[in-house]
Amino acid sequence: MPYETIEELPESVKNNLPKHAREIYFAAFNNAWDLYSDPKERRGDASREETAHKVAWAAVKNEYEKDENTGRWKKK
């Protein structure tokens, strides 16, 4: 189900990503939720929610990376 606010994101997202990265995740997830509503549009047997989370993480990783020393996400 799409998120109505950034505060509704999973704890793993809220507790690890900076605000801008959470905004990217939020927008990408909601867009993917709509885009992949038809199971034929998804790869394999992935659920709609699973696909939307994968798309959201990929969008975040386009602009952010996890620092190997600190474990914190930072802008590329």
Score class of each variant (00 low, 15 high):
47 S>R: 07
5 T>I: 09
47 S>K: 09
29 F>G: 04
22 R>V: 01
21 A>Q: 01
2 P>S: 10
22 R>P: 04
15 N>T: 02
35 L>M: 09
1 M>V: 07
68 E>N: 11
70 T>C: 01
73 W>N: 04
45 D>E: 13
23 E>L: 00
11 E>F: 12
23 E>T: 00
27 A>D: 12
76 K>S: 03
52 A>E: 01
63 E>L: 11
28 A>R: 10
71 G>N: 06
30 N>P: 06
8 E>P: 13
3 Y>H: 13
21 A>L: 02
13 V>W: 02
1 M>N: 06
39 P>T: 00
49 E>P: 08
59 A>R: 08
31 N>E: 15
1 M>E: 06
45 D>Y: 07
44 G>W: 01
9 L>R: 00
35 L>N: 07
58 A>R: 15
32 A>Y: 06
51 T>G: 02
63 E>G: 06
55 V>Y: 03
31 N>G: 10
14 K>G: 08
42 R>S: 07
59 A>G: 05
2 P>D: 03
53 H>D: 05
9 L>K: 00
31 N>H: 13
30 N>Q: 08
36 Y>H: 15
57 W>T: 06
66 K>G: 00
39 P>K: 07
69 N>M: 12
7 E>A: 15
59 A>I: 01
69 N>V: 06
69 N>S: 13
59 A>E: 09
3 Y>G: 12
73 W>L: 04
46 A>W: 13
67 D>V: 05
74 K>H: 00
35 L>E: 13
49 E>Q: 13
1 M>H: 08
33 W>Y: 09
7 E>M: 11
4 E>R: 15
67 D>Y: 05
48 R>C: 03
29 F>S: 03
3 Y>E: 07
42 R>P: 10
76 K>N: 12
70 T>K: 01
53 H>W: 05
